[in-house]
């Protein structure tokens, strides 16, 4: 395996929220103890349902949020706890693409200026140099350079997402974190953006962390996939083997109910429909957090928390009774 570009150890992020009891506050752990390595040139997919902490984790990894505890190192340097000024030179190497292309672009700025902004902030060069780079970026992401002077509202959702991608790539980052980059787009446009991301990765040797709730999309783009549930990483492994042979019962259930094109003649899939809802993250179940919904849970699962262990070189899982 190639070198590790980013390594996270035991990341915890808790937020303080208003409690139901008046005047009291309580802690919610959005991410509880996630450790993972991201290898150079790969796409690490992170999948999970809403509220599982996948976006919070991503923000902690790139230091957009300060983790409550745990450390992140990037290219061998520990970047958690660095002062802002020192963080800046690492920041240009880690960029984000956001979910909602309507909310992530300033409606009062011309798109050319939006893409130029990171270049100005990081002192890329004089105006002429910046303009040339912006034009280069526009053609890189497949946008017409004649649109530079226009405003975001004049572009469609897919085009706006391309603008967001151009902005993220402006400083030639090594790592790009894409947080649900195609969820707001229609399927035909979604496919265009996914293909674009793939092409750019090959052309620019990028490393992606790709967050999505869509299992099909994650499978399509990822080298490795991590599955999150209630703030914890429950399974991590090679995309192919994880999808073919899920080890964690949650992964198994998730995959079994993802809607698939199906003409009704060859349904061999066994659907595992989980009962109940995801528990309230401020009152997590004891033991394995998944046990109240798990079809295979035993008493041990309710009392003892399973460790996140490597089962084979490329697969890890947090379960007392892994499947298969």
């Amino acid at each position: 395996m190639s070198e590790v570009i980013l390594s996270a150890t035991d990341i915890v992020k808790s937020f303080s929220i208003k409690s139901k009891k008046i005047g009291k506050r309580e802690q919610v752990q959005a991410v509880s103890g996630v450790s993972l390595d991201v290898f150079r040139g790969e796409t690490l997919g992170i999948v999970g349902e809403s509220g599982c902490g996948k976006s919070t984790l991503a923000r902690c990894l790139v230091q957009l949020l300060a983790a409550t505890s745990g450390s992140v190192s990037f290219n061998g340097t520990v970047i958690t706890g660095l002062p802002r000024r020192k963080l800046r030179k690492h920041r240009r190497e880690m960029q984000l693409i956001f979910q909602d292309p309507f909310a992530s672009l300033n409606p009062r700025k011309r798109v050319g200026d939006i893409v130029a902004e990171p270049l100005r902030i990081h002192g890329f060069g004089d105006n002429e140099k910046i303009n040339a780079r912006v034009r280069e970026l526009f053609s890189l992401v497949g946008l017409d350079v004649n649109g530079l002077q226009r405003y975001p509202h004049e572009f469609s959702g897919g085009q706006r997402q391309r603008i967001g991608i151009a902005r993220a790539l402006a400083l030639n980052p090594q790592l790009v974190v894409a947080d649900e980059p195609v969820s707001a787009l229609d399927v035909s446009v979604q496919a265009q953006v996914l293909n674009l991301l793939k092409d750019l990765q090959e052309k620019l040797a990028l490393t992606y962390i790709f967050i999505s709730h869509d299992l099909g999309v994650v499978r399509h783009v990822s080298t490795r996939v991590g599955v999150m549930y209630l703030g914890e990483l429950v399974e991590l492994g090679d995309a192919d083997s994880l999808y073919d042979q899920p080890l964690h019962p949650y992964t198994e259930a998730l995959l079994s109910v993802a809607p698939e094109l199906d003409d009704g003649t060859q349904s061999t899939r066994k659907r595992i429909v989980l009962s109940g809802d995801v528990p309230d993250p401020s009152h997590k179940p004891t033991g394995c957090t998944f046990h109240p919904r798990c079809p295979y849970a035993t008493e041990k699962c309710a009392s003892e928390k399973p460790a996140f262990v490597a089962i084979s070189p490329s697969r890890s899982v947090a379960c007392h009774y892994p499947r298969a």
């Binding site: 469609s156 897919g158 085009q159 399927v187 035909s188 446009v189 979604q190 496919a191 265009q192 996914l194 293909n195 793939k198 869509d214 299992l215 099909g216 999309v217 499978r219 399509h220 783009v221 999808y243 073919d244 995959l255 993802a258 698939e260 094109l261």
Partner: peptide
């Protein structure tokens, strides 16, 4: 254009334009 669960890592077929 729909990525499949059992997909090979091929390119998605896109519909050009908007």
């Amino acid at each position: 254009a729909v990525p499949r669960l059992e997909s090979k890592k091929s390119r998605l077929v896109t519909i050009p334009g908007n």
